[in-house]
Design a protein around this nucleic acid. Structure first.
Lengths: 251, 251
DNA sequence: GATCTCCATCTTGGATACAAGTTTCGTCTT
DNA sequence: AAGACGAAACTTGTATCCAAGATGGAGATC
């Protein structure tokens, strides 16, 4: 029960080395939140990982206050579960949450595309073209996803509803957790996704709302279908593995 | 500068009088959040009201920690603005936020109704009927709104997407701020809203997705149109009043 | 008299101290 | 040896303390 003797705990990198650089990144709480968010979504902190406040304090080099605020925010997003006076752990990756995120995203983004048709202009079209070009030149899946986000966010901005993108981004988190699980298998169909982006752009360029919306819906469902399939297989494997072990209940 | 001499400060009612009652309502932070949320949405704390943490501590009878956590959550929802080392105030009622809330709500709720058609059954129909009956018997607008919420939430539940309702509820907050502003003028058309609920229910009962969705869209747009109109008039009046005063800039 | 400077005061951000409940593990009893 | 009991070592929730920037006004200066 004393696994703290190994030195490979995690990333011992503190959040603010206090080096002379002119780094003035707002509140510590926000930095901690962003960092833990990344680590959870990326899978560096798998579901079930204990998240005791004091441990995180030591690991990140800050006091409990900012860590606590970050954890509360993560709990609001259901990325961690806080059990008062008992402990805090990374929340499981839920297939339901995954499906809910898809529901919200599909309906809102399709509505955004429909709106975008009303506002599209030459400048916007060029911007979309640039983003797609950058996607083609992406050398890593991570880079591709970054530009993918930019593409979808740009649609929201063009539609004059960037606030809606914030909502989508927030709910999309559970979607992204699954996506990162399936990174390897994803790489193969990146060209397909880019092609779908082109179809969306084509619909927008022709001011054809129906085609643009249909393309977006196809695109989002494609992503969902693949991720969901891979996730389901993974769940099966996990269930098999679990069946072979001693049944251990952690609340 | 010493306006604390008048006794009419606010509601001096502490949050936990510690009376012998078996009240065990979770964390203080959550109670403070809920209370301040109510006071802001209801208009008891109008836009611009100073929200110094220490003042709130005195008023609510708790320490800074729970108050602070509540304020951070309110700031995330853009209900208060926190200016570090300077002050915190209730955020203005924004017509843009109002419009964004409408966008999200309309698209998501219409999608929920469409889904609901697939799951509707006798039990659900009876539940809807009861809610509408309670609305008719409501004696106050507040009571009516409570059952209105219940109606819309029930649709989300029937659709097996209650999580989506949480998202709607969160964004709807800015909508509700305006709605409370227009309470008096609202009272008159409550019967119309009930009638629209009946039309939605009728569409659901007939398993007619198109009609149900159309009824919901009409309903939501009716509410929006009225509130937006009233709000716009109110904004004009406010602008007139402001023009007569000395120009005072508060950040 | 107008304006600039400086400082007392007030605000929030972060760190620490205290309280209360939960879990775990050792010990005692049966 | 197995189970029950209890205390110590955790955990998070709350209160308080310190730090640092922002504000506003008093006083000095031009």
């Amino acid at each position: 029960m004393l696994e703290s003797e190994d030195m490979t705990d995690k990333a011992p990198e503190p959040i603010q080395p206090k080096s002379g650089a002119p780094e003035k990144a707002g509140r510590l709480a926000d930095q901690v939140y962003q960092r833990l968010l990344d680590e959870i979504v990326s899978g560096a902190l798998p579901p079930g990982t204990p998240m005791a406040e004091l441990d995180l304090c030591n690991r990140l080099g800050v006091s409990r206050t900012p860590v606590r605020e970050a954890l509360i925010k993560l709990a609001d997003a259901d990325l961690v579960r806080i059990y008062p006076q008992s402990g805090t752990v990374v929340a499981p990756i839920s297939r339901e949450a995954f499906g809910h995120a898809q529901f919200i995203r599909e309906h809102l983004e399709c509505a955004l595309v429909a709106e975008a048709v009303r506002f599209i202009d030459a400048t916007a079209l060029r911007e979309f073209g640039e983003i797609i070009a950058e996607q083609e030149q992406a050398t890593s899946p991570a880079e591709f996803y970054a530009r993918d986000e930019a593409f979808h966010q740009a649609i929201a901005r063009i539609s004059r509803h960037e606030d809606v993108w914030q909502v989508i981004r927030q709910t999309k988190i559970h979607f992204d957790r699954v996506r990162h699980l399936t990174l390897q298998e994803d790489a193969g169909h990146i060209p397909l996704l880019i092609q779908q982006h082109r179809e969306i752009l084509s619909g927008l360029a022709d001011l054809n709302e129906e085609r643009a919306v249909a393309a977006m819906r196809r695109h989002l469902r494609e992503v969902f279908r693949r991720a969901d399939g891979i996730f389901a297989r993974q769940e099966e494997n996990a269930a098999e593995l679990a069946a072979k072990r001693r049944p251990r209940r952690r609340r």
